[in-house]
Design a binder for these strands. Structure first.
Length: 616
DNA sequence: ATAGGGTTAG
């Protein structure tokens, strides 16, 4: 199995290490939060939600099957007269004629979700007689960001920088967003410092929104607060949205006083009244946390009361609605929800959205009113709102958690009609609860659905499946899932140990040796002395300790043979290619190999950085 | 015709 994650990270390190704005420091490489099913922290889940949200604006990612294009060597580094002179980005008027045509063609590729082609086209155009504008580049970078193609994004950014396409503020904002999504706030802030020091233009208000939100999401509230002060010093207006982000940060830190302080500060800044409804949900939550229910409800009244001047959007309402639901004011929440429904008159005024239903569904569930929850969930369509995978998962989980597996499965069954696809989480959830409900065959069936639907299988879910099967004494079956999945997911050492242990306990020595054989082929796992000792210990129980050495020797022999065959092939090729002219042949070989590695790795990390050849 | 405003549930 190809070594996927480590090589990806190494690759990213190379990219960032040579990034123009980052060349002065050499921190750890950004550890990209790859999509995974189990989130270690709520922040990770939140980061994933943000990514999903952005992804919504683009067609859902198809299985990344488009072929990797041949790419050639980077050109010689250019030597402009003054390499330190910051270049001004082009003005929007540069986007005309041929360059506008190019722009539109690339936008079409993006719309068709062919990001590889869009990036490649952009690169190839650099040295053609029609250079892409920075606006075109930004469009591609943005699409890559939305699809979490972080290494592609960094690679393209580096490419255009080396090629002398001057980035503009939007380019930088995209880079900030990427680092923050990757949970690398420090790298984002380094980049920000470089921008302040070196760039021939200023940050934009959006720069601060991105940074402050990202810092809060990454648990750097203090730094976010400092940045708010800093932007004020620089003459930027910190608006209600910035304050809203910071208030959310305070709530996360259980610091209601921080919320109140921010609200007062905003109020003063706005001349005594805050009209934007977005901050009131947080304010009310602050009072609830503080145990000041009366104050909370006073502000609630002030926000939505008859003579209120506060402008409420659907999102602002949702935040208030959530405050009520989570603090024992469900009756009031229902009244508010009703009012939101009455005020909803699309397309003129929108006071309801998917989120409103998610909040009220959770409210019903908290009250134990699951039937009502399902009912309102199903009424969503009446208000031109449609559920997504996450909202289905949410309700399915609530039902499962409360002993209503059958109802959860009904709901799952209705996803298809609504055109919503279950994801790995849906299946993992149903799998777990089928095991709990003593239906192991159905549970395994849900697991197989993950594989059959072409979803990226996840080691955590796989571990849970095998764990349950072993607990039930279904060792053979567990082993068959090991065989099925070992090629598809990046196994962990502990997963190998687990299956070996289970096989050992039922005396299946040959199967153990099989697993060891697979392990030896797995480049991602080091067969440490300790691991070997563990295997030997298990084999010893059946008096087959010596078999480990046999397997290892055999593997060495096979590997040595393969190596020899490869060497022979190489020298034969060398003989042939010396007959042909040029290095072209050799290059192509190299590319073929790396393309194969990527396909095996199954990651979204196709970050090839080769530049096209300079002028033809 | 390049970023970006907010919410809620994994």
């Amino acid at each position: 199995m190809a070594l996927s994650k480590p090589s990806f990270l190494t690759h990213l390190k190379t990219l960032t290490g040579s990034h123009h704005l980052l060349r002065h420091h050499a921190p750890a490489p950004p550890v990209v939060a790859l999509r995974s099913l189990s989130f270690a922290t709520p922040e990770e889940a939140a980061a994933e939600r943000r990514r999903r949200k952005r992804r919504l604006r683009i067609e859902p990612p198809l299985s990344s099957s488009s072929a990797t294009r041949p790419q050639s060597q980077p050109p010689k580094p250019q030597s402009p007269q003054n390499p330190n002179a910051p270049k001004l980005p082009e003005h929007i008027s540069a986007l005309s004629g041929n360059r506008l045509n190019l722009h539109n063609r690339i936008l079409t590729l993006i719309r068709e979700n062919d990001l590889e082609e869009a990036a490649l086209f952009t690169r190839h155009s650099i040295y053609s007689n029609c250079r892409p504008t920075i606006f075109t580049v930004n469009a591609v970078l943005n699409a890559q960001l939305r699809q979490s193609k972080y290494s592609d994004l960094l690679s393209l950014d580096r490419f255009i920088t080396q090629a002398g396409v001057a980035p503009n503020i939007i380019t930088h904002n995209l880079i900030f967003q990427m680092y923050l999504d990757c949970r690398k706030p420090d790298t984002a802030m380094e980049h920000y410092k470089q921008l302040i020091n070196d760039a021939p233009f200023n940050p934009s208000p959006t720069t601060y929104r991105i940074l402050i939100k990202g810092l809060v999401d990454n648990n750097k509230l203090e730094r976010a607060m400092e940045l708010k002060e800093e932007m004020t010093v620089k003459g930027f207006v910190s608006d209600p949205i910035i304050y809203h982000y910071l208030m959310v940060g305070c709530l996360k830190n259980s610091d209601p006083d921080g919320v109140f302080k921010l609200f007062e500060e905003l109020k003063e800044k706005l001349g005594g009244a805050v009209e934007d409804g977005v901050v009131y949900g947080s304010l009310i939550k602050g009072y609830f946390i503080r145990g000041m229910e009366e104050e909370a409800m006073k502000f609630y009244e002030q926000t939505v009361g008859d003579n209120s001047e506060v402008k409420m959007s659907a999102i602002a309402y949702n935040s208030v609605l959530d405050a009520l639901c989570k603090n024992g004011k469900f009756d009031e929440a229902l009244v508010l929800f009703d009012r939101m429904i009455k005020e909803h008159s699309p397309p003129r005024r929108l006071t309801l959205n998917l989120g409103s239903f998610n909040v009220i569904v959770d409210g019903y569930c908290t009250e134990g009113r699951f039937r009502d929850a399902v009912e309102i969930f199903e009424k969503m369509g009446d208000y031109r709102c449609s559920p997504d995978t996450l909202s289905f998962n949410n309700l399915i989980e609530q039902l499962c958690n409360n002993g209503m597996l059958a109802e959860a499965e009904d709901l799952y069954g209705s996803m298809g009609d609504k055109g919503v696809s279950p994801d790995e989480f849906t299946y993992g959830l149903l799998m777990d609860y089928c095991f709990k409900g003593n239906r192991p065959d159905d549970a395994a069936g849900y697991f197989r659905k993950i594989v059959e639907s072409g979803l990226r299988p996840n080691i955590v879910v796989y571990n849970r499946l095998v764990d349950e099967l072993v607990k039930l004494g279904k060792i053979e079956e567990a082993n068959s899932y090991f065989d099925m999945m070992v090629k598809k997911i990046k196994m962990e050492a502990s997963s190998y140990r687990f299956i070996i242990k289970a096989l050992s306990e039922s005396g299946k020595v040959d199967e153990i040796l099989n697993v060891v054989n697979t392990l030896l082929d797995d480049d991602g796992i080091e067969f440490t002395e300790e691991l070997q000792e563990f295997v030997r210990g298990e084999l010893r129980k059946e008096d087959r300790e010596g078999d480990l050495a046999k397997v290892m020797e055999e593997k060495e022999r096979v590997k040595a043979e393969a190596k020899a065959a490869e060497a022979q092939k190489r020298s034969a090729k060398a003989a042939v290619s010396s007959l042909l002219s040029s290095k072209l042949f050799g290059n192509k070989e190299g590319e073929k190999e790396s393309a194969e590695n990527e396909m095996q790795s199954g990651q979204e990390d196709t970050g090839k950085t080769a530049l096209p050849e300079s002028n033809p």
